[in-house]
Structure formats: structure tokens, C-alpha cells
Design a protein around this nucleic acid. Sequence first.
DNA 1: GCAAGGTC
Length: 652
Amino acid sequence: MSLTLIICEKNIAARRIAYILSDGNYKRGRIAGIPYYSFNNHIVIGLKGHIMKLDYPEEYSKWNDIAPKNLIDVKPVKKILSPSIARALKEIAKDVKKVIIATDYDREGELIGVEVLELLPKNVEIKRARFSAITPYEIKKAFENLGSVDYNLSKSAEARQYIDLIWGASLTRFISISSNQLGKDFLSVGRVQTPTLALIVEKEKEIKNFIPKPYWIIKLSMQKNGIIFEIKSDKIEDEKEAKKIYEKIKKEGYAIVKKFQKKTIKERPPYPFDTTTFLKDASYLGFSASNAMKMAEELYMNGCISYPRTDNTVYPPLPFDSILKKLEKIMPSDIEEVRKMRRSKPVRGKKIAHDHPPIHPVDACKVDEDHRKIYELIVRRFLATISKDAVIEEKNVEMAVKNHLFKGKGTIIVEKNWRKIYPYYKMKESNIPDMEENEKVKIVTSKLKKDETKPPKRYTQGSLIVEMEKLGLGTKSTRHEIIGKLYRRNYIRGKRISPSPAGVAVTEALKKGAEIITKPDMTAALEKEMGEIAEGKKTFEEVVEESKKILRDAFKILEGRKEIIAKEIKEALNKQNYFGKCPNCGGNLIMRKSKYGKRFIGCSNYPDCKTTYPLPQKGAVFFEGEYCECGAPIITVIYKGKKWKKCVANCN
DNA sequence: GCAAGGTC
């Protein structure tokens, strides 16, 4: 018997492909605990993404045994990530004559396929199926037109792995060892995480250096036909000028209409959910990116929504009617509304990818509270994208008082349509009456208001993910994990994200010695080089060697600055670990770790002063200079997106 | 105990 083995990137893809190729007549089985699907001398098996991982050989795993910079020239080895999958593949391969790689049609997918080949005997025939959607048409076409594996493409992905590992491992160890942050408290560095951290550090700097500029605005409260509305002057930067104008106009009883415009605007619904936009809106609902992603993954695993990792904002043909029919069971009145306001074609976003559809519901589900919020967001987004445009009426007026110009604006939603079903995007409505040119309108009151320009806003997890995507940092699958990592390392804190002292110190230290790792440019350059490997213009060896050279040069500078770097990071950590003055002896209270790894607060005069306080073991804790009535410091705790303050002595 | 990338 000669078998054909079809390898997919994940189990769900394997099942669907088996279903399509066998016209529904496949059998399920398990081997080494891994599910597979068989029909007519074919076996389809799904992996769990990469089955190999690049890492340093065991003997280099002790950080003190080798100087970090020497890691650059150690050859990493491939290690098996999932022994059970490797066993299953080897078992099946015994009877296999032909292998078809049917992993995702992208760079990492090509490498995942090649990883499998390394586990299989060399005498099998190897083919590659390329498809950009798991639909019967695409799949059948791909399997009728099999190609061969693109080793240049897989090599380009290997170059990325290699470069990420040598830069990440060597710099992580260098920074951690020089600042003596070892064990669980190590300080990490990476091609994606460090530029992301630098964005946050940079934003904080902008906020700190921001000098607010005062300005004045004259606001007039107007009345016509019983409608009260507001018009205002432009910003006036000079106080004297503002007062002069105000004095001149404040006793006036009327303003004269110079221009009046009324227009009706059709407002399209928001485009279908890709991962980035989904996480942005979930962030608005108070979900951290990691938590939102976890909820979405669980909803996907339970068959409630489509695959949650996608860059696509354009629906392929979907069974819209049957999805609506399913959803009717759980939200009948909403679905009735949507039926009444269906648009002829769903809206499309700008980004099109063909591997996965935009995130949408696939079935009606009843789930617990946290999942429900995420599920409802996804369902409502889907419904909005197939609903009619909202209709907005916008009025703009310019009025003059003694030759000084004032502007007013009114916005009213005439027909809510998609806004009815997707209430997360709020719009401020304000009404102004219709007016005609040269008409006199009554001024009710006038005010001169002082205000000032505002500093830029800190990132939220949502806006940070949007920015990362814009800069090409990370992927749809990794961005939320990168942000989670920065929190876990205590580099960043808060919902409105700010850097910790250590986050700032590590960024600054790297900027002065290895600036490239702190910028998105490194990813951009790597993308370009990977493209060249894929096109056969450069070899893996050339690209890796070039990268190694840049890293060696960076180490020359870093090694020279080692003492300063150590001092700066240690000072930052001291600041981070300082929790105020000891109420018993006046010494410094410091966050320490017990020998079991639990954190607590102790006095710097230990053992003479034995003052200690317990700390919560989870979340971020820090001191903002406040003390409780009992004399003990008040700490700020951030955990699971919530922030609160408490007396460290628990005196209440 | 290092990275980032897949996926569970």
C-alpha cells in the first residue's frame, strides 16, 4: 500500500482539507495522540505551527559559562518542539511514498513544511500545495496543480530565526549580566520588543518635555427658535489681544451670519475585523490585548467565531444568511433590525489577505460574562459591516460680531443604521438651527476662556498595537504577546502605558551602543534581506554573516560602556525598588525577594531594623511618594488591568 | 533563565 501524506499547519485546516478532498468521506483517527484524517490512501495531519525550534546547544545554557558576545559565533541547533507530533510523523512515514506540504501559504508556512521534511525518510516524493483560502474551489485547484517546495523562501525564514536568536540571546545576557539581574529578574532585549519599548519611552519623553502653551477662546452662547447653541472664535495666543476683542464684542446683542452650510453625509460602517482592529476595540472595552486574544482563541476553539489571527479586512463569499439565522436564536430583535437595514454588499477594508477571512461569528453561542463581551463585540462588528450607512446631518456656520469671526458646528445622526447595532463608536451630537446669510442671531452670553495646549497621549494597548502594525513590528499573532512580555519584565506599567525606570534605562543603554536594535528599521532591513534570499539574490550565509558583523561592532561599543550601563540600570532598579522611608528607623524601605522568590518590603537597616511589609505577589507594585496615616507607605498595585492603592501595612 | 514566529 502506498500512502500519500498531507501536512497542514493546524488541525482545523487538516480536517477541512480532508473534508474537501474526500467529499466528506473521511475517517478520523489518532496516532501518538495526534488527530489525523484518512481517505482513499491519503492521510491528512495537522501540526501545531512550528515543530522545530532554533536554540543554542545545551552546554551554552548556563549564562556565566560563556561571554555573551561569544554567543554570536556559536552555531545554534534545531530542537524538536513537539515530540508527540514528531513521533506521529515518523510512525506514519513508514508507509508513505508521497508527501504534500499544505501549510499556510507564507514564509513561515514554507519553513514549517521544510521542518517536517527533515523528520521524514529521504526517498519520498515531495510536493507543495499552495492555496490562499480553504474553500473547495481553491483546495481542489491547488491539489490538481501541485508545485515544489520553495527552499529559498524557507531559508529566508531561517535567517530571521537565526538573527533573532543571536541578537536576542547575546544582548539579553549582556544587559542582564552587567546589571546583575539574573534568574527570574533578567532583562530582555529583542528585535521587536525593544523598539516597542522605545516607542513608549519616547512618548514619555515627549510628555515630560512638553511645555503647554496658553491660548484664549471666546465662546458665545446663541439662541434661535428656542435652540441654544455655541459658536467660538479661533484660538488666540496673545492674552492682550484676546481681552481686547472680548471687550469689543461682549456687549453686542447679535451676530450676523456670514456663511451657512448644511449637508447630509453617508457614513459607512466600520470595515470587517482584522486582528489589529479587533484588539483596538477590545482595548476600548477594557480588555488587555493578551486577554482579548485569549478569549477570542477560546471562542474559536469552541466553534463560535472564525480564526482570530488575520490581517484580512475583506470578506470572501460567506453564508451571511445562514449566519444570521443562527444568531437569531440568541439575539432575535437585533437580527430583525439588521434584516431591515441590510446593505447590498458588505463593506470592505483596505487590507486584503487570502489565508483567513476577517474575524466573524460562525455560530450562535451562549458563553460566560468575559467571553460574552468579546463574542458580542465580534458579532456586532459583523452585523455592522452588513448594515446600511448611517446618515449624518452636518451644519457649519460662520458668524461675525464687529468684524470678528466665530464658528459653530452641529452634527445630528438622522438615521443610525449600523450605529444602532455597533454602539461602541460614540458620536457627539449637537444641534444648531438652520440659518440664512446676513441673518441676525441673538447672543445670550459671552465668555472668554483660557486653556492650554495638551501633551501627547500615552499609548493604550490598543493604540500601541495599531502603531506596531504601522511600523511593521511583530505579526498579527505575536504583537499582543510582545506587549505582555514588556509588562512581565516590569519594563512598562499601567493602562495608559508608561515605562518603568528600568525600561527607560535599558532603552537608553542600548541606544548608545546598539541603536539599531531600538528601532523598527532593523525589522524593515531584515524584511528586505529576507526578500532577497527568497528571490535568490543573496544567500542565507551572506545575510547572517552581515548581521553578525553589525552585532560584533555593537558589542565593541557596549563592552566599552559596560560600567556606565551597569550603573545606570542599577540606579533605575534602585529607584524602582524604593518604597519610601521606614517609619520605625528612618532607613530606606526596599523591595526584596525572599529565598523562595516571594517579594516583600524590608528596611535598608536590616538586621538592626527588622521592619518588613508583605507585598501582593501578582501584578505590578510601585511607590508614588504617599504615606498612610499609620506611617507606612501607600503602594500602587496594577493587576489584570485594574489599578488601586493600599496601605502596605494593611492598617485598615 | 535568552528572541520571534507558528499554534493549543
